Amino acid sequence: MSGTPRNAADIAKGVAPKRSSSKAATKKAPAKKVPAKKPAPKVLGPTDEDEAVELANALTIDPDNPKHARLARFIDEYMIDLNGTQAAIRAHYSVRTAQVQASRLLSNVMVQAEISRRQHERRERLGIEADTVYKYVHGIATVDTNELIENRIDACRYCWGRDNRYQFTRSEMEAREEEYNTECAAAADNGEEMPQFDEKGGTGFNPKEGPNPECMECFGDGVPKIVMKDSRNMSPQARMAYGGTKPGKFGPEMVVYERTKALDMLARHEGFYNDKLDLNMGQQMTAEELDALYEAAEAKAMADKETLAEREALLGDLEP
């Protein structure tokens, strides 16, 4: 039995024995409660409404301004492929509203001015002139596609054969003669009758001779055949419209830039349509024109800022 032994006096008085200090020391202290960490508050970026207000008040787009970071990213992405919707998606706008956001941004004078400034800098850096772009588009629009690819009408196998029968090429006829000699040798070994050799329409088939109008097999229609030209022999103008080759269902296919799109661009550039669309086909802006564009954008931004202030004041007066 553990604990301090009792003497006779304690037993007589009914005093309970004292517990040993070693056992009391083994008693564990209650664990302290660690306060739970509060989650850090979420830092939300500017909303589309905040961004619209900031853009209306801005005089220039500053990439170092956190509220302009997404705008600058949109312009960066737009300069890659000039696709507003995809640029908005890559700039982390909502996929659902990307088209609307792209339309909103591209209609803003500050965004237009920044895009024009970057296009001007890029043209200066690459040495691209308006005449070069115009010449390139004009070359695609007026190219003779027969320099790239032809749709030929060849003669069929019966067009020029004797008695309008199937005609062989020289190598095909030689192969048939070897096969006939083998059959004759086998017949001689077996004591059989020699087979007859049928030349049919004879030899000399050449599809480039064109169809025979009196052919009773194709009735003069011939056989259509698509032929791709050797890119090494193309003229400089044809090379403008040549976009290389790609794998197709029936073999390699030639990629040709669409002539109709190039014609449409030329027609719009020359003002043949009523909408008078300015395609800005490589047109370089002078420093004075660029300054004028920035001044107009600044004036528009100030007017929008004043309108916004008047609207807020009016709403303040209407509040009870």
Rank of each mutant, 00 (worst) to 15 (best):
A297R: 00
G220F: 12
Q101G: 02
E183D: 04
A185V: 07
N151F: 09
K67T: 05
K249G: 01
K33V: 15
A8D: 12
D10Y: 03
D10E: 05
I115S: 00
G161D: 01
G220C: 10
E270Y: 15
S103N: 04
G282N: 10
E147P: 03
P320W: 13
H92R: 03
R165T: 11
R6I: 12
P17D: 04
L314T: 10
Y242V: 03
V256L: 12
K23S: 09
V111E: 00
Y242T: 04
S22T: 10
L55K: 02
A72D: 08
K18L: 15
D189Y: 05
D144R: 02
E258P: 06
N212C: 12
H120Q: 06
L126T: 04
K37P: 06
A12C: 03
E51W: 05
I128V: 15
P66R: 10
M79F: 06
R232L: 07
V53L: 11
D275G: 09
S231A: 10
L308H: 02
K276T: 03
I149Q: 05
E306K: 08
R104H: 08
G191S: 07
Q99I: 03
H68P: 01
A303M: 14
E214D: 07
V100C: 03
M281R: 05
E183C: 04
L290F: 12
R122H: 04
Y180Q: 04
A87H: 00
I140M: 11
R268E: 07
A175K: 05
K135Q: 14
R259Y: 06
M285A: 08
E183Q: 01
Y136F: 10
L263P: 00
F74A: 01
D278P: 09
K200E: 14
L266G: 07
A185R: 04
V255A: 05
A267F: 13
M254Q: 11
A31F: 15
A98G: 00
Q119I: 01
